[in-house]
Simulated assay, not measured.
Amino acid sequence: MLCGQCAAEPLTLTRALVGAAAQIGDVEVFLGANFSRTFSRTSPPNLRFASYGALGTSMDLSRAGRLEVSQMHYSALHAAFAEGALKADVVFLQLREGPRGLSLGLANDYSALAARHARVVIAEVNAGVPVTTGADLPADIRIAAFVEAAMPPLDVPPAALGHVSEQIGRRLAELVPDGATIQIGVGAIPDAVLAALTSHRDLGLHSGVMTDRVLDLIEAGAMTDARKTRNPGAAVTNTLIGTRRLYDYADGNPHLMVMPASETHDHCVLRSIDRFFSINSGIEVDLAGRVNAERAGGQQVGGLGGIADFTRGARASKGGASIIALPATADGGRISRIVARVEAATIGPGDVDFVVTEFGVADLRLASVRERAGRLTAIAHPDFRDGLERAACGGGPG
């Protein structure tokens, strides 16, 4: 079975599934990016879990060896469910009754595509979900049963900002011009970047997610979507992940569109957007410019997701750029996140224009292999630079 992801998780249904697991036998549950604690390493053993990444709270399932991850880009995942190559027997959706019928509300993702091919679709109707532009439930989806939500949709507040993330945000904001259309994720680094963009003008959004921090930019007058070359005047996202404030803003708002991945993640769409800036993070970056967003210490702690879709779209965009931002160290400063060679190459060296840490910006455009290594070493934590220099010269990491 498959359930909605992010804030579109139908909590009444998913919690009922966990509660009744002992009575229903073995079930494989396909999860997306999770932000609730509904499913965990202590979930009943007859529930097996699969996903396109160990994303959000699903990371705990991965660390417990209970998550099977498929190596699929988000755009390919969308296509596989649309074509029926991937199928679910049962789909749980979260919906809202609107003036034109049922709305998908907080996510217009692969769940609706899976519902087209499912044997049974059960819908949780939640009055707290916004009716969003672009997210009408497709007319050909047949709902077998409706359940009234027993709780409001998931609330995901912005991340707390620390000194390092704020430094990174300020450095990255200098790379983004007025009038740019941005793609951004969820977490401390994306939130710090958005907080640093409040003095910009006429920014636009075309992204996989929209959060409360994006709404801050809209309310500050920094994001108007006025100069977008596609869907001008409207922010475009695949999912909404935030609080009641964001959901109220989205309700019936024609200037915010919740669109399928065929619009938000498609390469031809992305390359058609002038000044498209993709802003993503990673676990580590190596001296060639490869980015690992999947594995750490031999464990799956991320996934392919949409990072390759967005970075390649941004590099193909007129005036656009692909940016990777991450702290220089992990584990209290004991591990460098600029490394000689990544554990897994989620995106290649040709997919990144800039890498940003709290120590600076590495411009990888037109850089040779030697220049890349030097520029990336320069933005590593000083404690690790000597070892990286030796590695770049062929002497090992030191």
Score class of each variant (00 low, 15 high):
T133V: 10
T133D: 08
G134D: 04
G134K: 04
G134T: 09
A135S: 14
A135I: 12
A135K: 14
D136K: 07
L137R: 14
L137V: 11
L137N: 11
L137Q: 01
L137A: 11
L137W: 09
P138R: 11
P138M: 04
P138E: 04
A139E: 15
A139R: 14
A139D: 15
A139M: 11
D140F: 11
D140Y: 07
D140H: 06
D140N: 13
I141Q: 04
I141S: 12
R142K: 15
R142L: 12
R142G: 04
R142V: 14
R142T: 15
R142E: 15
I143E: 09
I143S: 12
A144M: 08
A144I: 07
A144F: 07
A144P: 05
A145K: 15
A145W: 09
A145N: 12
A145E: 15
A145V: 14
F146V: 04
V147I: 01
V147P: 00
E148W: 02
E148F: 06
A149H: 00
A149N: 01
A149Y: 04
A150Q: 13
A150V: 04
A150F: 02
M151E: 15
M151K: 12
M151D: 12
P152Q: 07
P152K: 08
P153K: 08
P153W: 06
P153Y: 09
L154D: 01
L154W: 02
L154H: 07
D155M: 12
D155S: 13
D155E: 15
V156D: 05
V156E: 05
P157N: 11
P157S: 13
P158C: 08
A160C: 01
A160Q: 12
L161I: 13
L161W: 06
L161Y: 10
G162E: 03
G162T: 01
G162S: 08
G162Y: 00
H163W: 11
H163K: 08
H163V: 14
H163C: 09
V164H: 04
V164I: 13
V164P: 07
S165L: 06
S165A: 10
S165R: 06
E166Y: 08
E166F: 02
E166P: 06
E166N: 09
E166C: 05
E166W: 06
Q167V: 03
Q167M: 10
Q167A: 15
Q167W: 02
I168A: 09
G169Q: 03
G169M: 00
G169N: 11
G169K: 02
G169I: 00
R170P: 01
R170I: 01
R170C: 06
R171S: 15
R171M: 10
R171P: 00
R171W: 09
L172H: 05
L172I: 04
L172R: 01
L172W: 07
A173F: 02
A173M: 00
E174N: 12
E174F: 01
E174M: 08
L175H: 00
L175G: 00
L175V: 00
V176W: 00
P177E: 13
D178C: 03
D178Y: 06
G179W: 02
G179V: 03
A180Y: 02
A180L: 02
T181F: 01
T181M: 03
T181R: 09
I182A: 05
I182V: 14
I182L: 15
Q183F: 09
I184E: 03
I184F: 03
I184N: 10
G185P: 10
G185I: 08
G185Y: 05
